[in-house]
């Protein structure tokens, strides 16, 4: 299948490893991602907190650009996914807002006619391609790798009917089928604080400490995430959390596509693993199981 790819700003900067690994995984599975030409920032939570119509307009510019290709639009960043999805949802339900947004888009001869589906790569891989087929394409088993599957907030919430919103299973089933051991992880949909790490660091540091503590306490070797902001908060601030709470965490945080990419035979460089601050390597046992 072919999809229109919306990387989002983070995937070009602090989360380049996510971009590299998403492209690798889709390619390895024979799925085509075609990057949306001249896409702009989705506006994220910050724009949404300031102006309603304008934030919908800038997000809808992407939808209007993508619409002419008729393919589903895939956004890996949880914030982009939520904002684009929400924009689509609001415009579909509110004809007045749709008219206002299109009035602004007209200045660039654009118009959005509500025909797109906004999707997340995790859900695309699990639902369109299928776990069984992914397992059949895997070159390396993840046997015995103890993972904490961390979904964060915005991929399961607000409810889009794709997965259980309190106890989602998509990543769990995917990696379990590849041999991994999913640890007990009740914090899987707990919020990491998002931008609070900048605005109210004390609140965010505590939230992240609790997530790390839970994963670590239940024996996780790594935390798997779907969101650039969760990734930065849990990874780049681990030192700060250790210092503040007198802890000794050293847990690698990987994007789900980085782990999946390893199973599909990707090299650390192809998957952007060299960009992570806390290194992760598959244990020998996992590699041997493959042979």
């Amino acid at each position: 299948m072919e999809y229109t790819y919306y990387p989002g700003c983070s995937l070009e900067a602090s989360s380049r490893g996510y971009d590299e690994s998403v492209r690798f995984v889709f390619n390895a599975l024979g799925q085509k991602l075609i990057e949306l030409e001249d896409w702009n920032c989705c506006g994220a939570t910050s724009y949404m907190s300031t102006k309603e119509t304008i934030s919908l307009v800038i997000s809808a510019r992407n939808l209007a650009l993508a619409e002419k290709y008729g393919r589903d639009i895939v956004a890996p960043c949880s914030a982009c996914y939520t904002i684009l999805y929400k924009t689509n949802h609001i415009l579909k339900n509110n004809p007045i807002m749709k008219a206002k947004v299109n009035q602004a888009l007209k200045k660039d001869n654009l118009e959005y006619n509500l025909s797109l589906n906004v999707r997340h790569p995790l859900e695309v891989l699990v639902n369109d391609f299928g776990i069984e087929k992914i397992v059949s394409k895997a070159l390396i088993r993840l046997d015995g790798v103890k993972m904490a599957q961390y979904y964060g907030c915005q991929i399961v919430r607000p409810d889009r009917g794709l997965d259980d919103k309190e106890n989602p299973q998509m990543m769990d089933s995917l990696f379990e089928a590849l041999g991994a051991e999913n640890i007990y992880f009740p914090m899987k949909v707990r919020c990491c604080g998002g931008m609070l790490m900048t605005t109210y660091p004390d609140v965010a540091l505590k939230l992240n400490k609790e997530i790390l503590e839970c994963a670590y306490g239940n024996g996780a070797e790594l935390i798997v995430t779907t969101c650039p902001l969760c990734h930065v908060n849990l990874e780049a601030y681990q030192d700060k959390i250790n210092k503040k709470f007198k802890k000794d965490f050293h847990i690698p945080i990987l994007f789900f596509t980085q782990v999946l990419g390893l199973a599909l035979g990707g090299t650390p460089k192809e998957l952007g693993l060299n960009r992570n601050l806390i290194p992760f390597q598959l244990k020998k046992t996992a590699l041997e199981a493959t042979k």
Binding site: E12, D38, N40, I54, K100, Q103, D108
Partner: peptide
């Protein structure tokens, strides 16, 4: 780790983008 760009990335259609923004500001007040 190559995770910070020294220069901002820009979209090509900046001019039309600001035209859209100006109109959106008007729409915000409607």
């Amino acid at each position: 780790k190559g995770r910070i760009g020294l220069l901002p990335k820009k979209i090509k259609g900046r001019e039309t983008f600001s035209r859209i923004l100006r109109e959106a500001e008007i729409m915000e007040m409607v």
